[in-house]
């Protein structure tokens, strides 16, 4: 069974399973212990607490004591949490950033510091504490902001945060494009900035210090906008959604070329918003979306078929083009549903017949569907201009 369709075959929202998006992915560390016995690969190997493998930075002796860990997720994910399990003492200050464009630009997700204002220029706020104007109106229009708080004292070697931290309760991802944007990331970057304790001397030489992390976890779901239940590797080995509902793209973020009868939309719990195929009666392979027609139809159908074949024409290739007429013995989708008019070269006054009945326009005294006979009371003349004349 396909989770993207119900038992009756109707589309329904489907989402990939919750995973640790960091698992097995390669982390780029700006500093790694040169002995190679504590590589960055140990950050994402899901080693258990009992035999935890740890990445270690070089031994740092001068400020600034910044070390950066960059984790490409391979594609967009919708994040739920980020966590770092330290093998060394947890640093006093750390910042977590996200990228939504595969590392070209970065924006902050969260800061941890005992001195938020001095280190990051941000007010310190305990998790769960509401922002100054905690309301939908104040937060949602410009999007959630990265919080800065002291590392929680009781979490031991763990530094973790939820993407929901600091947001007003009752926020619904389905109905909030701002929240959808907030939780979306293609890459995560952690900047460890300030060791804990007396080593945190400002300027010049400091006591040797090593950052060491056993596990970097990024909990979330592969982002498919409700149109795929799993992500798979494509032919080039890139992670992409296994799109359903007539969608395509790495995140199922657009309709497939022929599925443009209505605009693309993200699926919600109540409505799958599947992309619909254009209705072209089997006579066109391409169509385009027309917003004006969509509005006029009561937001039901806006697809316009392109390049109708088999001598058909119209928005849905639903009638016959000029010079052809509908053969009522065949269904509209038949490739020979439209027959050539075949108007008689002498008896007909033109080459174009009625597109529905096939009746050619006949000269005076001529009859028949193709105007190939003289009407009763008329007989054939020798003149091609007036082929039938009244019988005297």
């Amino acid at each position: 069974t396909d989770p993207c369709y119900d038992e009756a075959g109707a589309p329904q929202r489907c989402i990939p399973e919750f995973v640790n998006a960091a698992l097995g992915r390669e982390v780029q560390a700006s500093s790694t212990d040169p002995r190679q016995t504590h590589p960055a690969a140990f950050l994402t190997d899901a080693s258990a607490a009992a035999d935890r493998t740890c990445w270690r930075s070089e031994t740092l002796t001068r400020t600034p004591l910044n070390v950066t860990l960059t984790l490409p997720l391979g594609k967009a994910f919708e994040l739920v949490y980020v966590s770092l399990h330290f093998c060394s003492a947890r640093p006093d200050s750390a910042a977590v950033f996200k990228s939504q464009d595969h590392g070209r630009s970065w924006s902050p997700l969260r800061f941890f510091s005992s001195q938020c204002s001095r280190v990051y220029g941000r007010p310190s706020r305990a998790v769960g504490q509401a922002p100054a104007q905690a309301s939908l109106g104040s937060i949602v229009p410009r999007g959630p902001e990265a919080l800065c708080s002291e590392p929680p004292p009781r979490t031991g070697p763990l530094l973790a945060f939820s993407m929901q931290d600091g947001l007003p309760p009752g926020q619904d991802l389905d109905s909030s494009p701002v929240l959808q944007d907030w939780v979306t990331a293609t890459d995560i970057r952690v900047v460890l900035t300030r060791p804990v304790g007396p080593r945190a001397t400002e300027g010049g030489v400091v006591a040797p210090y090593v950052y060491s992390v056993g596990e970097l976890q990024v909990g979330g779901r592969c982002k498919c906008n409700g149109h795929a239940s799993r992500c798979v590797a494509d032919t080039q080995g890139r992670l992409v959604c296994d799109c359903r509902h007539g969608t395509e793209g790495p995140d199922c973020e657009r309709c497939k070329p022929f599925y443009c009868d209505r605009p693309w939309q993200r699926a919600t719990a109540h409505e799958a918003h599947a992309c619909l195929a254009c209705s072209c009666n089997g006579h066109a392979r391409r169509c385009r979306f027309n917003m004006e027609l969509y509005r006029l139809s009561g937001r039901r159908s806006g697809g316009v078929c392109l390049n109708c074949r088999h001598n058909t024409a119209g928005r849905h290739c639903h009638y016959c083009r000029e010079g052809f007429y509908r053969d009522q013995t065949r269904v509209l989708s038949h490739r020979r549903a439209c027959k050539a008019c075949d108007c008689h070269p002498v008896g007909a006054a033109g080459k174009t017949c009625n597109q529905t009945t096939g009746q050619c326009p006949c000269k005076d005294g001529v009859t028949g569907l193709t105007c190939n006979r003289c009407a009763p009371g008329f007989q054939q003349s020798r003149s091609p201009v007036a082929p039938c004349v009244k019988i005297p």
Binding site: T367, R373, Q380, S383
Partner: peptide, 23 residues
């Protein structure tokens, strides 16, 4: 009664060469 179809051979195209269809 079904009338016979127009017989193209009976037409005189002398004055209408330019209207004559390919036959």
């Amino acid at each position: 009664d079904v009338m016979p179809t127009l017989d193209m051979a009976l037409f005189d195209w002398t004055d209408y060469e330019d209207l004559k269809p390919d036959m």
